[in-house]
């Protein structure tokens, strides 16, 4: 009861209050840049609760989804390999940290030169930005295997694949997942930016089109949509993370 109250009811009320405040304060706005919320919401309805949703939003989701998937597969694969070779760490860790520290947007112009402006470029840039936090988290996760457990696997003659499947992977999963959570917002930003630069569809394209032609209510409606999609995806990732923690996490148990 109390959980429902503080987990759902209170946040919902606060959100409503903020939206209400926005509504009231912006109701008589004549500013070109900050149109009334009423206009934004009606733009939201015409733009997104219509057939445009499929042509504008689905390409963006598809790019983020595929980019993240490639990032996860590459990050986990390479991260697990680096993590298992203890001696490799001092040589590769500085380079990995360097790659992670680069602002993802920075690699956009060279990637456009190399890969052109098609979907391949966008998905490639998203994957190339999302891969670093996942890769580094995987290295840490594989490293965090308890030494006793490693001994156990060796004493009982578990072959490498069995140790990977039954000991390393479950230990690493919660770490990997926190990497995925960190990568998701980055992938989002890069998706919007890559579409902003050059595209024929997608949310970023829509924002760039509407803002350069001063259709600000439309632009803001896209911002609201991005926020909502972000909340939904983050919630999904968090819920999946909790389930994984229940299955693999040890701290929940001892």
């Amino acid at each position: 009861m109390k959980r429902l109250m503080y987990g759902v009811v209170v946040p919902a009320l606060v959100t409503l209050a903020v939206a209400g405040l926005w509504w009231v304060l912006s109701a008589s706005s004549t500013s070109l840049f900050f149109p009334p919320l009423r206009d934004i919401l009606s733009a939201f309805a015409t733009n997104w609760l219509s057939a445009d949703f499929a042509s504008m939003v689905l390409p963006s989701l598809w790019r983020v989804g595929l980019g993240m998937l490639i990032g996860i597969v590459a990050g986990v694969g390479v991260g697990a390999a680096i993590g298992s070779v203890r001696r490799a760490e001092p040589y590769v860790k500085p380079q990995l940290e360097f790659m992670r520290a680069l602002p993802p947007i920075l690699i956009l112009p060279p990637m456009i030169l190399v890969l052109g402006t098609g979907d391949g470029m966008k998905i490639g840039v998203i994957a190339a930005s999302a891969v670093w936090p996942i890769l580094l988290a995987t290295v840490d996760g594989v490293r965090s295997l308890e030494p006793v457990r490693d001994d156990m696997g060796r004493v009982f003659g578990l072959p490498w694949r069995a140790r990977f499947r039954w000991m390393i992977l479950p230990t690493a999963v919660p770490h990997i997942w926190s990497g995925v959570r960190a990568a998701l917002p980055i992938a989002f930003v890069v998706m919007v930016a890559s579409e902003y630069y050059s595209s024929v569809n997608g949310i970023g394209y829509f924002v760039s089109q509407t803002s350069t032609s001063f259709r600000l209510a439309d632009m803001w409606s896209a911002v609201v949509l991005l926020g909502l999609i972000g909340v939904v995806l983050n919630t999904l990732v968090a819920v999946a993370g909790r389930r994984l923690d229940k299955k693999f996490g040890e701290n929940a148990h001892d």
Partner: peptide, 29 residues
Amino acid sequence: LGLVFQDYSRSLLPWLSVADNVRLPLRYK
């Protein structure tokens, strides 16, 4: 050779059942 570890609770895998923990080494024999 078999070994029972000092840190026994960490030597067991929490994501496997009791029976699966015991069976695990046998799967690869």
